[in-house]
Design a protein around this nucleic acid. Structure first.
Lengths: 229, 229
DNA sequence: TCCGGAGCTTGCGGCGGCGCAACGTCCGGT
DNA sequence: ACCGGACGTTGCGCCGCCGCAAGCTCCGGA
């Protein structure tokens, strides 16, 4: 197996403060892996044996209700750590990580988490900061679900995805991975019908454009106005 | 100022593994404080200068939406750490901590967090475990808000409060702090009217009993059936 | 090239829960 | 003992959103 290239980690926040030899050390212990779109990296409730870095793609963090309904907690863009159960003092993964598109990951045995934290400058801080950002995001979702109407929640969700993963295309910014009406409904506590109706209306109004599995925001400003009520 | 009694920390999880001298050391750096019901210990967005241990009472963790609506994220029972922004790599508190009843706290400068983590066996683990439990609880709330109807959410909320803070009284288990219909509505993303109507119905059905600011669950089993749909 | 299935759209009817409004009740302060 | 305010209850009407149903479009595989 060829050695992994050091540039992989150079610009990734958790490792940003490290020097070449340290990065080499970390890479030599990493297990690279490719996942197809739709594949699960790990599942809710399973033993948390490894933690991951997402090199490319987008991860969808999901949970399943007792009745079998899917709920998406958040999306993780490339460059971030995930599955870091050790940072939460947990022995099992709290949610399922599904690839929204083809994904490339590095992973390490969970036992190395504490080693990395002790050994590498800034790693602990960045790791816990990642947790903090996720917590803030979850808090925001709770607020939205509790106080906003569906229309506002869907507008917010689209804006968040565009900010996290968007790429410029002609006429707007496109969400950086394939996404269905059903997916959006699972992010917003809604139904695919309602999402479809709203996207149709917004398309008529020139706010978004969408093809099957692709959504482009063409007028972010007006979408923001909707999100804010 | 008299020295604080060591038994204060003996049975509190974050300090459970420590010996007398270590507990002495920690207590000598602690600032004890009493808060009236309704008082804020710290506020959302303010600099996170200290972290806290709740000795007695119940803390309500709240956020305010841009439109001024209050949302309660979770309740913290006695014996737990809170305001541990450092564990999330944050410089400001992510939410407001309000006393649901009279509260007694100990607190330490946030700079000591990293000292405690490095110095005291088990402290880091317990601290991050606390974060993990809160994250799990938030995840659960997101799921509930996204998939359950108001009736189920209110039933779940009552059961959770009873489990966390309940005390046996004749005829049932009473929630361990004063709580209004408005409070419950802010926990469940509902309105005080809906909560009132449901509590009235459940009271007729013999599932709960309530007086002003007091709620007793008299038939937890049936309430659980409602919570599960 | 055809077929099947996944994804998307749209109309219609129903209803859960909200908002308003009005009124009751309990408690604490002076 | 009284009064004011916070807390709680309940009826009514409305509407946002869901659930069902039917049909369309697009894409990939044999």
């Amino acid at each position: 197996m060829p050695r992994l290239d050091e540039t992989l980690l150079r610009d990734v926040p958790p490792f940003r403060r490290l020097e070449g030899p340290e990065i080499r050390e970390i890479l030599d212990q990493a297990l690279p892996k490719r996942f197809d779109a739709g594949a699960a990296v790990f599942r809710e409730g399973h033993p948390a044996t490894r933690f991951y870095l997402l090199l490319d793609g987008t991860i969808r963090v999901m949970r399943t209700s007792p009745e079998g309904e899917q709920v998406t907690s958040l999306h993780i863009p490339a460059g971030q750590l995930f599955g870091i159960a050790a940072a939460l003092g947990r022995e099992t993964y709290p949610a399922t990580a599904v690839c929204a598109a083809e994904c490339l990951t590095l992973s390490w045995p969970m036992s190395l988490w504490h080693v990395f934290v002790a050994r590498y400058d800034g790693f602990a801080e960045e790791g816990y900061k990642t947790v903090g950002v996720r917590v803030a995001e979850m808090n925001q979702r709770i607020m939205d679900l509790a106080t906003q109407r569906v229309e506002q929640r869907i507008a917010s969700a689209l804006l968040r995805l565009v900010n996290q993963t968007g790429r410029k295309v002609e006429g707007g910014v496109e969400i950086g991975f394939p996404i269905t009406r059903q997916d959006i409904s699972e992010m917003t506590g809604s139904t695919l019908h309602t999402v479809s109706r709203l996207l149709s209306r917004w398309e008529r109004d020139g706010i978004v454009a969408s093809r099957r599995k692709h959504v482009t925001v063409t007028d972010p400003h007006r979408l923001l106005l909707i999100a804010e009520g």
